[in-house]
Computed example of a mutant assay.
Amino acid sequence: MKSDAGGPRTVLVTGGSRGIGAAVALLCAERGDAVAVNYARDEAAADAVVERIRGLGLPALAVQADVSDEAQVLAMFARIDEHLPPLRALVNNAGVVDVAARLDGMTVQRLRRIFDINVLGSFVCAREAVKRLSTRHGGAGGAIVNMSSAAARLGSPNIYIDYAASKGAIDTFTLGLARELAAEGVRVNAVRPGIIDTEIHETSGHGDRLRAQVPELPMKRAGTADEVAQAVVWLLSDAAGYTTGALLDVAGGR
């Protein structure tokens, strides 16, 4: 989407340094957007994504922020306001899982981390985006895509019901916010990936479990980050102009 002045507008992708987030950031750039690539720790990975976007001739910026920390989120949006074209979209992609466990083996610290990042982080980032996008606040409109999960409807028993519950919250958040902003030029949707072949499974200790599940999947394969990114970018685009409050499964029939 081009700005009124004819130049690109900015998409902020949280957790944009790897996996689905990186795929979304790169596909947005291919469609002509400037991109703010948020990361929590891996600066080198974020910088690599930014360099690829700049190689396409578009503005890009790596912005560090732990989305569970309000002060860091505010600083991130301030940097984007200063260094990039006006914001037109947010992809709330930053999220974490933990090692497989039952509820009776989960600590409060684990639960707080899951909900602080996956839920609170998405709320605060969306709040700041709304202040810039909504016509009620003088914005030109735009779109928000929240990253949910098929786990929200499956529950993920014996693996991570905390993660599944956090994504259930994201589904409800998406439905409510979509209706709240429908008359203010901002569309809000969610994408619910199934089993996707990204490094998050290895870093959280779920790699073997993912590989074991593949033969049981309807399509007999895991999805790819690029396949999820295609759905996200469609929801951001004008082609989805009458789509808001949707929960779009990209789960291979699971």
Rank of each mutant, 00 (worst) to 15 (best):
K167N: 07
A182D: 02
A182K: 06
I144C: 00
R110E: 09
D249Y: 03
A231D: 09
V250Y: 06
G245I: 03
A225V: 10
D33Q: 10
P157V: 06
R41M: 02
L56F: 06
I196D: 04
R110G: 04
P218K: 03
N158S: 12
I195R: 02
A94K: 04
V63K: 11
A246I: 04
D42M: 01
A126S: 15
T174Q: 01
I195K: 06
M219R: 14
L84K: 05
G15W: 02
T203H: 10
F77L: 02
G57N: 14
R209S: 10
P193T: 10
I117V: 15
R153I: 14
A60P: 10
A140M: 13
S68E: 11
R132C: 09
A126D: 10
K131N: 13
R254A: 08
L27I: 07
R211P: 05
T224Y: 04
T14S: 11
G138F: 04
E184R: 01
C125L: 05
G168R: 00
D238P: 07
L12N: 05
L154H: 08
T14A: 03
L87V: 07
M76P: 01
A62K: 11
G194H: 09
Q109Y: 01
I195F: 11
V67F: 11
V91P: 12
L236S: 04
I196N: 02
D33S: 14
N93M: 06
A71H: 09
R113D: 02
R9M: 15
V11K: 05
V50K: 13
A225Y: 07
I196R: 03
I80R: 01
Q72G: 04
V37Q: 03
L248R: 07
I195L: 15
H83S: 12
Y242N: 00
V108W: 05
M219W: 10
I161E: 09
A240N: 03
L248E: 08
K2C: 11
S166L: 03
L26K: 14
E51M: 08
L235S: 08
E70S: 12
D208S: 15
A231Q: 09
R41Y: 09
R88P: 01
A71Q: 14
A151N: 10
T10R: 13
R9H: 05
Q64N: 11
P215V: 07
P59R: 13
T10Y: 09
V130P: 07
G241Q: 05
I20W: 04
C28Y: 05
A143W: 01
A101Q: 15
A231C: 11
